[in-house]
């Protein structure tokens, strides 16, 4: 059931080259070191403006400070165990964070999907939910390999109208209408759908 790739220590017959060892060490302590650095930087950004309140007992900084420190301690522990792990490698199976390899994973498609999400997030407040949702469904299906333009159009338009009906019409949610011309369009469109 474990999709995890377990590398058997290949170091049985020869000591790892120093350069490779360094690379292994760095890659394995990168994440905990990054988190450790974060815990050192974050406290100075806790308050944006100087506080004018008088603390009674513990101040508003107490709780986050406790847990930032706890994270720092754990990150150090993690780094130590990782280093220990690297040097004790010969003795045991090496397990590390390795992406699941049970299926073909297309990082390009994942990146494409994330780009679409960012585009949608930018469009939503500007052009309103109706247009951005229809565009999003269209592009996402395209990315997912649907090439039939009839299906693409039907799914995006009917889908968008259904969502508008359920959430703006029935549930009375104030989804974004966009700004300027797009606001005018949205109001017109919502009237057309008898939602307004």
């Amino acid at each position: 059931m474990s999709p995890l790739r377990t590398e058997t220590g290949g170091a049985k017959h020869r000591a790892p080259h120093m350069g490779r060892l360094l690379q292994t060490v760095l890659s394995r302590i990168a994440l905990p070191s990054g988190i450790l650095a974060l815990t050192l930087i974050l406290p100075s950004y806790m308050f944006h403006r100087p506080l004018r309140i008088r603390a009674r007992g513990l101040g508003p900084d107490a709780w986050p400070t406790i847990f930032l420190n706890a994270i720092a301690v754990i990150a150090v522990l993690w780094i130590i165990t990782e280093l220990w792990g690297v040097f004790a490698e010969q003795k045991r199976k090496r397990t590390a964070f390795v992406p699941e390899q049970t299926e073909v994973y297309s990082y390009r498609k994942a990146a494409g999907g994330m780009a679409l999400l960012l585009g949608f997030a930018w469009l939503l407040p500007n052009v309103g939910f109706a247009i951005s949702a229809a565009l999003f469904i269209f592009c996402w299906c395209l990315l997912g390999g649907i090439r039939n333009s009839g299906i693409l159009l039907a799914v995006s338009v009917i889908g968008m109208i259904t969502l508008l009906w359920v959430f703006m019409g029935l549930a009375l949610m104030p989804l974004n209408r966009g700004v300027g011309v797009f606001d005018d369009f949205s109001v017109w469109f919502l009237r057309l759908l008898r939602i307004y």
Binding site: L124, F136, I137, W140, C141, I146
Partner: peptide, 13 residues
């Protein structure tokens, strides 16, 4: 793909 698009829109809503 269609399912994914709607799950995302529902999630965002």
């Amino acid at each position: 793909a269609v399912l994914g698009a709607f799950i995302i829109l529902l999630s965002i809503i």
